[in-house]
C-alpha cells in the first residue's frame, strides 16, 4: 500500500499530511494518557505495535501473481482505536521509508492516512457493529483485522485515483484500475491476517482478559467464559 517517494504531486502530498497530522498528534496524547493511567496497558500497546511490525514485513505472494503484505493494524484498532493505531503505524512507516525505500517521506502523510487512520477506522467501526450484534469476540477481531487491511488498500487506490484521474472515466475509472491492482491481491492476505490476529487475540484473552475488560474491549461475560 506504500505510495512510493515522489509519486504524489505536492498538492496531494501536502493535503494528506494535513489530514493525518492532527489524528497522529491526538494519538500521541491518547498514548501518554493511557499509559499514565494504567501501566498494565504498556505491553498491550507493544503487542499492537509488534503486530504491525511483523505482519507488514512479510511480502506474501497472492492469487494475482503479485506480492503484497498485510498491515497488522486490526489489533491496535480493536484495543485502542484508530488514533493510537495511527501513531504505531507512523513508527513502522518511518522505519520502512528510512531503511527499506518502501514508501517515502513526501508520501508519509498519505501512507499514514491509509494504513494508520482509514483502515483502522473502518475496522473499528466493524468491530463496534460486531460487538453490538453480540458476535463472538474472536469473530469480531477477525472481521476487524480483515476489513482494516482491505480498507487500507482501497484508501490507497482512492488517493492515487484523485491524484491521477483517467482521461476517460476520471477518478472512478482510475480508482477501479488501482483497486484492481491492490484490493484483488489483498483479499486472501486480509483473510489470513484476520485469522492470525484472531488466534493470538484468543490467547491474550485467556491470559489477561481483565486488562481487555478495563479497555472495554471485552464484555464481562466473554472474558469469564472458559
Amino acid at each position: 500500500m506504500h505510495i512510493m517517494e515522489g509519486f504524489l504531486p505536492p498538492f496531494w502530498a501536502a493535503l494528506w499530511f494535513a489530514l493525518a497530522l492532527p489524528v497522529v498528534a491526538y494519538g500521541v496524547i491518547r498514548v501518554r494518557r493511557l499509559v499514565g493511567e494504567d501501566r498494565e496497558l504498556l505491553p498491550l500497546l507493544a503487542v499492537s505495535g509488534a503486530f504491525i511490525f511483523v505482519l507488514s514485513s512479510l511480502k506474501l505472494p497472492s492469487v494475482t501473481g503479485s506480492s503484497s503484505h498485510p498491515t497488522g493494524t486490526g489489533a491496535g484498532a480493536v484495543l485502542f482505536g484508530p488514533a493510537v493505531t495511527s501513531v504505531l503505524a507512523t513508527i513502522v512507516l518511518v522505519y520502512q521509508a528510512l531503511f527499506l525505500a518502501h514508501g517515502g517521506f513526501t508520501t508519509l502523510g498519505a501512507n499514514v492516512f491509509s494504513m494508520g487512520i482509514a483502515g483502522p477506522a473502518a475496522g473499528y467501526a466493524v468491530y463496534r457493529v460486531c460487538m453490538r450484534s453480540r458476535l463472538g469476540c474472536c469473530s469480531a477481531v477477525f472481521a476487524t483485522a480483515a476489513v482494516a487491511d482491505i480498507a487500507t488498500y482501497l484508501t490507497t487506490s482512492f488517493q492515487l485515483a484523485l491524484a491521477f484521474p483517467a482521461t476517460t472515466g476520471g477518478v472512478t475509472a482510475s480508482f477501479l484500475a488501482f483497486a484492481g491492482i491492490f484490493a484483488l491481491t489483498q483479499l486472501p492476505l486480509a483473510i489470513v491476517e484476520g485469522l492470525v490476529i484472531a488466534l493470538v487475540f484468543r490467547y491474550i484473552i485467556a491470559l489477561r482478559g481483565d486488562v481487555l475488560e478495563r479497555l472495554h474491549v471485552l464484555r464481562r461475560e466473554v472474558s469469564a467464559a472458559p
Binding site: S66, L160, T167, S174, F178, I181
Partner: peptide, 18 residues
Amino acid sequence: HAATGTDDRAVEQIDALT
C-alpha cells in the same frame, strides 16, 4: 523471492494513466 509487488504495479499504472 517476492514476485512484483503491488507498489511497483501501481507505479506502472500511473505511467499508463499519464
